[in-house]
Simulated scan of single mutants.
Amino acid sequence: MLGNMHAAIAAGFLFASSVSVTAAPMWTTVGSGGFDNGYASSITYDVNAARGSANDRGNAQNALGAADTSFFEIGFGSYIDLTFGTLFDTSVSVFEITFGNVLSWPESAGIFVGDGIDFQLIASIDNTDAQGGGVFPISLVGTFDTVRIKDTSPTRGLSTGGFDVDAVRVTPVPLPAALPLLGAGLAVLGFVGWRRRQAA
């Protein structure tokens, strides 16, 4: 009886040691968070997501700013949240770098927009063509401050960490035309009020 129990415990340890353990997500945010001509300026991502390190693809800063062929791998099954220092409501442009090479690097992702808490899917993207990305219109009512890109890549081919993001850009919500005029009018009224107080 005791021998059988030891054998069962040993088998349990052997089984446990052969199972790969995925590290728990550890979220971090990098970037300035300011406005950068509509390009992403801040990224929140899971440090422990499965991604490679060659070509600096593990550097989240590569997904910020304008497209420059440096890129960040989202990580298989993981996602990133990008902010832009502005609200947007028109479209999202995504720039990738392995387009047209789907046989070696099959990659895909879902593109969502939201407010940092609630998100809605606006498009799916993959790298089956050679365009290097796409522009995805937002047909939802409201304004948004965050783009979420969720990797849906199959874990095959040479890809080490799923969908590659070079850059993401949004079209900022324009200020109403009357707003600058209102600001100028308030400034004039403030100056006139100040002059009257000085004269009194």
Rank of each mutant, 00 (worst) to 15 (best):
I117E: 10
N37E: 07
F35Y: 03
Q61L: 14
P176E: 05
S153D: 08
T28M: 12
Q120K: 10
K150T: 15
A50V: 06
G161E: 00
S153F: 00
S53A: 13
T128M: 12
S20A: 11
N48I: 01
S70W: 11
A23D: 01
T90A: 15
S159H: 09
F99V: 12
R51W: 09
P172D: 00
A8H: 07
A8F: 10
A23Y: 00
F76W: 00
Q61C: 14
T29C: 10
Q198I: 03
Y79A: 10
D118G: 09
A16C: 10
G142E: 03
S53Q: 14
G100K: 02
R197G: 08
W105A: 04
L186Y: 07
V102P: 12
P172V: 01
I138L: 04
P172E: 11
N101E: 05
V135N: 13
D164Y: 07
S104R: 02
S53Y: 11
A187I: 04
T28Q: 02
I9G: 04
Q131P: 12
D126F: 09
T69M: 08
L121I: 12
G114K: 07
D145N: 12
N101R: 06
S70M: 14
I111K: 06
A177L: 13
T44A: 09
I117K: 09
F71D: 10
I149P: 06
Y39I: 11
V21A: 03
S20C: 07
A177W: 15
F76C: 02
T28R: 07
S42E: 15
F88V: 02
V19Y: 05
G114H: 02
A67S: 10
P176A: 01
A130L: 09
D166H: 10
A177Q: 15
F88K: 00
L189Q: 05
N55F: 08
A49W: 06
G161W: 00
A60L: 11
D46R: 04
A200W: 13
A109S: 05
K150C: 12
P180C: 05
T86C: 07
V30G: 04
S93A: 15
A24G: 02
A200P: 13
V168I: 04
L2G: 10
T83H: 08
T22A: 01
P154L: 01
A11G: 06
V170T: 06
I74A: 06
S53E: 15
I111S: 05
L87E: 08
V135A: 13
T83A: 11
F136L: 13
V113C: 07
T155Q: 11
A8Y: 14
A200I: 07
S42A: 14
